[in-house]
């Protein structure tokens, strides 16, 4: 079955695979930091390399009862249940933005616990269900 021709072809393939793999590992090691779309509030807290007043994306849950809104700006707390970050934003928020929902904010870090956002994205989770179902789940939880 394995003629000489087929063996050369296999050799060719294996060498291509090895070359690409080494390239990929190299790229991965270099990109490790940039590949993350957002950081969590705890990462910001512990990471000393993050400069204040630089553009950054932070993701987490919007803390319950933390949204304060007046006609100029909206203020809320973004949490990963370990550390918290106060976010200030002026502009319209996406429809799905609400308490106890995921959100990604993009903006300038002012101090390590205060972020002035340019853009807010709502993060959706992997759960899909009809509203009645959600109601039942909520009642069961109580």
């Amino acid at each position: 079955m394995l003629t000489k021709k087929i063996k050369t072809r296999l050799l060719f393939l294996v060498s291509i695979i090895l070359i690409t793999l080494s390239f990929l590992i190299f790229i991965y090691l270099n990109l490790k930091q940039n590949i993350l779309y957002f950081k969590t509030p705890s990462e910001i807290f512990t990471n000393t390399t993050i400069e204040a007043s630089s553009m950054i994306r932070v993701g987490g849950m919007v803390k319950k009862d933390s949204i304060q809104q007046n006609n100029k700006e909206i203020r809320f707390i973004l949490t990963d249940y370990k550390k918290e970050l106060i976010v200030v934003y002026s502009g319209t928020v996406p429809n799905l933005f609400s308490e106890e929902q995921g959100a990604v904010v993009e903006g300038i870090l002012n101090d390590k616990k205060y972020l002035i956002a340019d853009r807010i994205l709502a993060k959706h989770d992997e759960n899909y269900m009809p509203p009645q179902m959600k109601k039942i789940l909520k009642e069961n939880a109580k």
């Binding site: 779309y37 996406p94 799905l96 933005f97 853009r119 807010i120 709502a122 959706h124």
Partner: peptide, 12 residues
């Protein structure tokens, strides 16, 4: 667009 609030994001 209606869910996240953006058409595109450079996430992984």
């Amino acid at each position: 667009k209606p869910t996240w609030g953006t058409w595109w994001a450079w996430d992984a």
